[in-house]
Every structure is written in C-alpha cells, then in structure tokens.
Computed example of a mutant assay.
Amino acid sequence: MSTSQGAEGTESAVSPVAPARDGRRSAAAARRRERERDILAATRALFDERGVRDAQIEDIAQAVGINRAIVYRHFTGKEELFALTVVGYLDELRGLLEEAAQVDGARARLAAVVTAFVDYGTTHPAFVDCAQTLMRRTGPELLDEISESALFRLGRAITGCLSILSRTLEEGVASGDFSVTDPTLLANTLYASGLGALQLARVGILVKEVAPGVPTVGEVSPDQVRDYLVASALALATHPG
C-alpha cells in the first residue's frame, strides 16, 4: 500500500468519528442547558410561591425530579441560583420599561418608567427579595459565590434595565426638562432606593413619633409608595442636589 493510500485509508476510517463525537458533545450540551433551564424555572416558581427564604435546594431539586447533588453540578450554590433567577425577572422588567419609555414628554416618560418598575416589584415580591439579597453582598463576596459567567449575565441584565432609565434621564436633559449632572448615578440611585421602598410597600407599615420618645405605626399602601417614588424621581431629575 502506498503512503497516499495509507493516508486516505486513515482519513476514511477517522473522519466519521469526529462528527459523531461532536454530535454527542452537542447533544450533551443541549441536555445540560435544558436541565439548567428546568432548575431555574423551578427556582422561580418556588420563589414566587413561597418566597426566597422558604425555597431550599432540596425543594428545587425535588420539583425538577433530581437530587440536590445534580443542582450543584450546574450551579455553584443558592447565591448563583438567586443571581440567575434575578436575571429572568430583570429580562421581563426590561420589556416593561422599554414599553413605558415610549411615552411622549420627558416628565411623563420618567413617570411611566418608574411606575412600571414599582408595579412589577409589587407584583413580584420575590424579585425584590432576590435583588436585595444580592445587593447586600460585596463585589469580592459575589465573585467567591457566583461564577464569572453568571455574574456577567446578572450585570448585563441589570444594565439592560438601568440603561433605559439612564436614557430617559439623558433625553430629558437634552430637551431641557431635566438638570442631571450624572444620569448613570441617578439611575442607579433610583433603582436601589426603589427596591427599598418596594419592601416598605409590601410591609405596609410606617413608623413615626406621635410625641417625643413615643413611637407608633401607621399604614402605607403600594399606591402611596409608587406615587412617592415617581414624585421623588421627578424632583431629583428636575432639581438635583
């Protein structure tokens, strides 16, 4: 047999193997992605049903029909599940913010965007819990608890929402309706303070002083919180500082 014939024979024998191997890898990757989607969907469902604190890894695994060890093969832990579940919420929220940002007029547009944010948070309290839990972590802590790829997806989802708010502020500055030195900083501040106010709306209780040293509680409704956040956003955008 000549050298060329040997090479051809080797090629004909080997070439079918590579596509088969690639096919198996592709199928395995597809199964892995599907399993991850199932786990995240179960996490989201349990968060919405029970709240963040009462949803355990064992419950998530049982909902998918797997054991908890398999969950840890796909995710570094509960913090990463928090992060990627928040990504799902934020993706939904971004669509609502984009729709709200179509309103004409800078002030009306900002009010619509803030209203959409508050209404979504009121309807999805688990989103608020997850987002606040992650915000209590420092950057180094998040890097220790969450993979870089998951952290990137979370950052992209957050900026996807914040960019709509920043753009709304920038357009208001361009039209002369707003006076904002740093739209990005204000957008981040509104997001963070909005999460805190949404927690207040869920609790529904205000603490106040009726006399020196004498505390009491009052009620606050989600509508009141929403109106306050809209008014605050407009005031900060119009008269910063």
Rank of each mutant, 00 (worst) to 15 (best):
residue 48 D to G: 09
residue 49 E to L: 15
residue 50 R to K: 11
residue 51 G to R: 10
residue 55 A to S: 12
residue 57 I to Q: 11
residue 57 I to N: 05
residue 58 E to Q: 13
residue 58 E to N: 11
residue 65 G to I: 06
residue 66 I to S: 14
residue 66 I to C: 14
residue 69 A to D: 14
residue 71 V to S: 04
residue 72 Y to Q: 00
residue 73 R to T: 04
residue 73 R to F: 03
residue 75 F to E: 01
residue 75 F to I: 03
residue 79 E to P: 14
residue 81 L to H: 07
residue 83 A to M: 10
residue 85 T to F: 12
residue 85 T to N: 09
residue 86 V to P: 01
residue 87 V to D: 05
residue 88 G to D: 14
residue 89 Y to D: 04
residue 90 L to S: 01
residue 92 E to I: 11
residue 95 G to D: 09
residue 97 L to V: 12
residue 98 E to S: 10
residue 99 E to P: 08
residue 99 E to L: 12
residue 101 A to I: 12
residue 102 Q to M: 13
residue 102 Q to P: 08
residue 103 V to P: 10
residue 106 A to L: 02
residue 107 R to E: 10
residue 107 R to N: 12
residue 109 R to T: 03
residue 111 A to R: 00
residue 112 A to M: 06
residue 112 A to H: 01
residue 118 V to K: 00
residue 119 D to Y: 04
residue 119 D to Q: 11
residue 127 F to W: 12
residue 127 F to C: 08
residue 128 V to H: 02
residue 129 D to I: 05
residue 129 D to L: 03
residue 129 D to H: 09
residue 129 D to M: 06
residue 133 T to F: 06
residue 135 M to K: 13
residue 135 M to E: 15
residue 136 R to F: 13
residue 136 R to G: 12
residue 137 R to P: 08
residue 137 R to W: 06
residue 138 T to H: 14
residue 143 L to T: 15
residue 144 D to L: 10
residue 147 S to V: 06
residue 148 E to N: 10
residue 149 S to K: 07
residue 149 S to A: 14
residue 149 S to C: 04
residue 150 A to G: 04
residue 151 L to Y: 06
residue 152 F to C: 06
residue 153 R to E: 09
residue 154 L to N: 02
residue 154 L to H: 03
residue 155 G to E: 09
residue 157 A to W: 02
residue 157 A to P: 00
residue 157 A to I: 07
residue 158 I to C: 03
residue 158 I to Q: 03
residue 159 T to I: 12
residue 161 C to E: 01
residue 162 L to F: 05
residue 162 L to A: 03
residue 162 L to Q: 07
residue 162 L to T: 08
residue 163 S to C: 12
residue 165 L to H: 00
residue 165 L to F: 04
residue 166 S to E: 07
residue 166 S to D: 04
residue 166 S to Q: 02
residue 167 R to G: 01
residue 169 L to R: 00
residue 169 L to I: 07
residue 170 E to A: 05
residue 170 E to P: 01
residue 171 E to C: 02
residue 172 G to R: 00
residue 173 V to A: 07
residue 175 S to M: 03
residue 175 S to N: 08
residue 179 S to M: 10
residue 180 V to W: 01
residue 182 D to N: 15
residue 182 D to L: 10
residue 183 P to S: 10
residue 183 P to F: 03
residue 184 T to Q: 15
residue 186 L to N: 03
residue 188 N to D: 14
